[in-house]
Amino acid sequence: MNLTLKIWRQKNADAKGGMETYKVENISPDSSFLEMLDILNDQLINEGKEPVAFDHDCREGICGMCSLQINGQPHGPGRGITTCQLHMRKFRDGDTIYIEPFRAKAFPVIKDLVVDRTSFDRIQHAGGYISVNTSGNTQDANAIPIEKHNADKAFDAATCIGCGACVAACKNASAMLFTSAKVSQFALLPQGRVEATERVLNMVKQMDLEGFGNCSNTGACELECPKGISLENIARMNREYLKASVK
């Protein structure tokens, strides 16, 4: 496949960036999107140019590191996948592909396509954990019976990999899907109830401090989420927040 790539280039966080055009040739339809970018970077290095910086790690859809807004969609076309799971056969020979960083005030660009997603870490630190006694006499978690339905829902919420596609897709750059998944994975379990009140209040407060937008219930996040995290979680977070506010 021969492709034209329009890629966002930005030297550093403070530089003014812009779109640049590149051509790549003889790309196998079976290569992954990130492999295609590797080929482009080899080409750039051989030409003595600066390669395009982009995030990636596991390349098997589990770490959430790869990002990229491809043709206006986070992780490109296709549902339930990350960019590392996207293959070039989704595109056609001769296509022009737009590649941009995830855009949100709370995800500032570090370089080219790499954005700083530590705002998610700070939301996690604000309450996305349970306090456990680790002195050696920790109770076996399996000793507490949990209703199957709740265990399943908690597990579904816990599959969130913190990739940020929900924020990137949202017209408001809202982080409600991510935050609600991290609230729900504990809210549904007895171990999580102990600190439930402060958790939801603190995590939502941090989310707002980071400058994420509000939720308009467009549902874009749910559709673009590689793990299929449901809007149900946002409704649950709203209920948790209301409950916590009147306590």
Partner: peptide
């Protein structure tokens, strides 16, 4: 975004 395909998901 330079390209934003809102219609793809909302």
């Amino acid at each position: 975004y330079v390209q934003y395909k809102g219609s793809a998901n909302s």
